[in-house]
């Protein structure tokens, strides 16, 4: 329970950070579609954000593995949906 609480505190801090807050839904931009290479680079950068790489909290980013682990442990999933494709 304690670890869940701290995980949630970490999540709220992450969600409240300017980095994440900057990703609020924005009006559709009129610009050229980014290349797949750009999108891959942005996704990889997103995977390196500090809150996903904390040593005291485990975040699953693979949906199949997350569900598998939830089944094994009998726990619920707390899912945070974000995006990497926007600037």
């Amino acid at each position: 329970m304690k670890s869940t609480k701290w995980a949630l505190v970490a999540l709220v801090l992450a969600v409240s950070s300017p980095f994440i807050a900057a990703q609020a839904p924005a009006a559709p931009a009129q610009r050229a579609a980014p290349s797949q290479d750009d999108l891959i680079a942005k996704r990889d950068a997103k995977l390196k954000v500090p809150f996903l790489n904390r040593k005291d909290v485990t975040w699953f980013t693979d949906y199949d593995k997350a569900r598998e682990e939830a089944k094994k442990t009998g726990k619920l999933l707390f899912a945070y949906f974000t995006r990497s494709y926007a600037k």
């Binding site: 980014p34 997350a66 494709y85």
Partner: peptide, 18 residues
């Protein structure tokens, strides 16, 4: 358990409509 889903628009990434 904590799960973070990233909508990346990378064509090979699964569950992009999750």
């Amino acid at each position: 358990m904590l799960f973070c889903h990233i909508t990346s628009q990378v064509s090979t990434d699964p569950y992009q409509k999750l």
